[in-house]
Design a protein around this nucleic acid. Structure first.
Length: 642
DNA sequence: TCTTCTGAATTTTTT
DNA sequence: ATTCAGAAGA
């Protein structure tokens, strides 16, 4: 070990006592319960720096986060503290680390190192095809679960270890009768992935667990390579991820997990906050450190957030405090209609702007993407620029998936799914035709694509020969990947123009896609990264966002903070969502969602609830204020109406 | 029989 | 914005 220059980091000056304790624990299992705004990121950053400062080899540290961006940000801040000495720290998501290990040891599990990664859309499509081609076919598709429901069920079975029957009973009691069919679809899906060398997101985790569980030498090698493991957002891990942590650390138990059970809002994706509750059981002797001093919000705001979360049924009890004095009481607004709500937001924003609060320091938060439709119109009419977070992603849009499909078949000619997508673009080809043709192409192999296509149908021959020459050209093309994308874009343009009115915007997206390939030398790596670490939306959006109002789903707002937070639609039927009313656990999660929303505010919190809502069928219906706000003492708010 | 068209409906979505 | 179901068209 090299001798390091003496540290210039003033740990005891920069950190409070709880943070300092967490940062300077020598090793062993540590659970940090980090309340909202309590300096969680700072603690992780200083922990990395402290480890390196005390002589730990940066290469033996592993930082697991939920996004690549989070890992990069923390590591660069740690590097800043230490003048660049942490550059070799390994950081990334559970999935990317799993991918890394699996590429190396795939053979042990019967996979080739060149397996392809399916993103969520890919799994959904595969499952939809299976749903439609189940044999014997479903007599009556009416009432049969949608692909999304089936995919979620299968994923949950995988992530929780429960049976299909059990998961259905908990999540979809009305679908329990379809358990047998869902199991059959699940088996088909597994078979499909195996025979086509595919892994979905769950496989990247599940197969990593298998690898580490079943192959002792691999387990030892990996566990000695990473001597210190740090995990962020631990409340959002599922059981497979908790297993991975357990296995990675089995030789040394040097694990620090950081999280807040009160901010667990991703259970619909399989996250299980009991992981954080059970951490001390999984790692006996774990030290538990609570960060409860809040550096973000004023006291009146904290009074509201504490009041919301102290009624939560489970979790680590905690009460955030601040040393900051003063601050305005949060404002509660009853608006007459949705339109009045939107106008009130506009007024608010104008007034804040007049008081020199920059637009990008104001956020409007809501439960679901479509809740902001009316507001978006009102903002546009008033010339207020905004960016919207949440909802659909760049890579999930159809035109991007269409173009990527053409690249995927170059990389993996057996990629049936992509063939189907490619073929369905052609006029006159629907699912049935595409399924048949794709089967012939996959079985015949790429060189025979032509022979599968040409006799396929005389009436399609013009289109097929064009597709065929595209594929041939791309296969023989040796230049940069961006040229391949551009070639596909030229081929795809007529379809794009035909299908979408906003084709110029979509074409620009496709040009961006070509630019994204520039750093890559292998198509394979590019496609992996597109599945594992999708590009930031910044790549695709205008740079004007630094002076735009922020509109965001509450889920996408997690981890962020603003001077002023305006929560709209604080009514029953929106928060909590009607889908959550059936189950006590779901309702508790809705409470945490609102907790996340309110804890984003630094100076101002505004909560708006329209008095009535327009129902398509019955007209105007009165609403009730969200139950979670009704529970907050009246004197915690100022009130206004609009 | 298969594809395309139309109108209706929609929870959240780090991998 | 996308997806789904049912109807109409090829």
């Amino acid at each position: 070990m090299k001798t390091q220059p003496p540290s210039r980091v003033a740990y005891d000056r920069d950190l409070n006592s709880a943070q300092l304790e967490a940062v300077t624990v020598p090793g062993g299992p540590i659970l940090v319960i980090a309340g909202a705004g309590s300096g969680k990121t700072r603690t992780i950053v200083y922990r990395v720096a402290w480890l390196v400062d005390s002589g730990v080899d940066p290469e033996s540290i592993l930082l697991l986060t939920f996004t690549r961006k989070a890992a990069e940000e923390m590591l660069s801040r740690a590097a800043q503290l230490l003048d660049g000495r942490v550059t070799r720290v390994a950081g990334g998501t559970f999935h990317s680390v799993g991918n890394l290990l699996l590429r190396k040891y795939a053979a042990l599990l019967g996979f080739g190192a060149t397996f392809s990664i399916m993103d969520q859309g890919d799994s959904l499509e595969a499952i939809d095809h299976m749903r439609k081609t189940l044999s014997p076919p479903i007599a009556d598709m009416k009432g049969f679960p949608k692909a999304r429901t089936i995919a979620e069920t299968i994923s949950r079975v995988r992530g929780s270890g429960q049976s299909v029957q059990e998961v259905l009973r908990r999540r979809y009691p009305h679908l329990e009768g379809y358990a047998a069919e869902i199991e059959r679809i699940g088996a088909m899906y597994e078979e499909y992935k195996k025979s086509n060398q595919l892994m979905d997101y769950d496989d990247l985790l599940g197969n990593t667990v298998r690898l580490l569980e079943e192959f002792e030498p691999v387990r030892r090698e990996i566990s000695s390579r990473w001597q210190h493991i740090l995990v962020d957002e631990y409340q959002d891990t599922n059981r497979l991820q908790a297993n991975i942590v357990r296995l990675l650390a089995h030789l040394h138990d040097n694990v620090m997990v950081v999280g807040d059970d009160s901010q667990s809002i991703y259970s619909f994706r399989g996250a299980d906050f009991t992981n954080i509750v059970e951490f001390p059981t999984l790692f006996p002797g774990a030290r538990i450190i609570k960060l409860e001093e809040n550096y973000r919000s004023t006291l009146p705001i904290l009074n509201v957030t504490n009041s919301i979360i102290e009624r939560a049924a489970t979790g680590y009890p905690k009460r955030l405090f601040t040393r900051k004095a003063g601050g305005l009481l949060p404002l509660a607004v009853r608006a007459e209609t949705e339109r009045d709500q939107s106008r009130f937001v506009v007024e608010c924003v104008r007034e804040l702007h007049a008081h020199r609060v920059p637009l990008n320091e104001v956020a409007v938060l809501f439960r679901a993407g479509f809740h902001s439709f009316d507001l978006e119109g009102e903002l546009t009419r008033n010339g207020i620029p905004f960016v919207k977070y949440g909802g659909f992603k760049f890579l999930e849009s159809q035109h991007i998936k269409d173009v990527l499909a053409h690249l995927k078949v170059l990389n993996n000619p057996r990629d049936r799914l992509s063939w189907i997508r490619i073929l369905k673009l052609l006029p006159g080809v629907g699912l049935k035709t595409a399924l048949g043709l794709a089967g012939r192409i996959v079985e015949g192999g790429m060189p025979d694509a032509a022979s599968a296509l040409v006799p396929a149908g005389k009436k399609f021959s013009a289109h097929f020969s064009e597709l065929h020459s595209l594929i041939t050209e791309l296969r023989n093309h040796a230049g940069p990947i961006s040229e391949k994308v551009e070639r596909v874009n030229r081929y795809y343009f007529p379809f794009l123009k035909e299908a979408y009115d906003n084709y110029p915007k979509r074409m620009r997206d496709l040009e961006n896609l070509a630019d994204l390939t520039v750093p890559y030398r292998s198509l394979h790596r590019f496609l992996d990264d597109m599945a594992l670490e999708p590009p930031d939306d910044e790549m695709t959006e205008s740079p004007s966002k630094n002076n735009s109002l922020v509109l965001s789903t509450i889920h996408s707002s997690k981890g962020l903070e603003w001077h002023t937070v305006i929560i709209i639609w604080a009514t029953e039927g929106r928060i909590p969502s009607p889908m959550a009313l059936e189950s006590e656990d779901d309702l508790e999660e809705e409470r945490r969602i609102l907790y996340v929303a309110t804890t984003r505010a630094k100076q101002n919190l505004v909560v708006i609830a329209p008095v009535s809502v327009l129902d398509r069928r019955v007209g105007r219906v009165p609403t009730t204020l969200s139950r979670f706000f009704q529970e907050v003492p009246q004197d915690h708010f100022r009130t206004a109406s609009a």
